[in-house]
Amino acid sequence: MNYWQPPRIRRYAIAIWHRNVLVWKRLIGPAMVLNFGEPTLYLLGLGYGLGFFIGEMGNMSYIAFLASGIVASSAMTTASFEGMYSVFTRMVPQRTYEAIMATPTDIDDILAGEMLWCGTKAAISGAAILIVALFLGVVKGWQAILVIPVVFLIGLCFAGPAIVMSALAKNYDFFNYYFVLIITPMLITSGVFYPIDTMPQTMQTLVHLLPLTHAVELTRPLITGQPLQQPLLNIAVLSGYAAVSYYIAVVMVRKKLLV
């Protein structure tokens, strides 16, 4: 068996996606509290609190700056949590994948479905933040609705690496490495909380290798009504991360489960 064989995505992926939607619907109450509660608290607390001292940032109110960045970072954390804790639970302790793999639905389909679901969950969290931001008066114009598909793409982009971590993990504690070494540094350096153009040039080049930087470069102008700088590059980087990480995830999970 060739573990490196290119994956084929088929309609079976939709069944996996649908499974997760059904489970999510059952727990919709707590999910909504998290989706709406968290951004509301962050934006009110940091946006107004910190914003009082900061005033304007990047030619906009700090709360607008923060809201348009958090929409991207929250997609990242949502997809990462789902791709790690939930996927690992289904893959290892719950052995849901083992049951599914005895049917014509295989690893390629399962992971494609999980990626779609991570994207969907990111889009739900993005939509919630967009609504909160709308009430706070920082959304400028109808183009902001495009944030939803963008956030879906951001979800795909971070789902793949998270699933790779699930394939590598022996237990849940392993994910701490990924959060501390990858996710948190990215959150701090990718322009969510402050503009990256204040950084030294080398640092700016480096942070442009990170997908979150490209994600913020899409969400911020879309929400605050400013012109997009390099949307095609941003989309290409996010899609590239999504595609390559999906492929690596498929290979890693094949090696883990087909033994």
């Binding site: 079976y12 499974r19 489970v23 052995r95 083992e98 049951a99 599914i100 005895a102 014509p104 639905t105």
Partner: peptide, 29 residues
């Protein structure tokens, strides 16, 4: 064309009895 019963039950704990059967049908397309 195969039905498989694994050594340890791996029913989907997020679903009821009938939902387990429905969902499994979906995995068969």
């Amino acid at each position: 064309r195969i039905g498989a019963v694994p050594q340890a039950d791996n029913l989907d704990p997020d679903f009821t009895v009938v939902e387990n059967l429905r969902m499994y049908a979906r995995y068969f397309g």
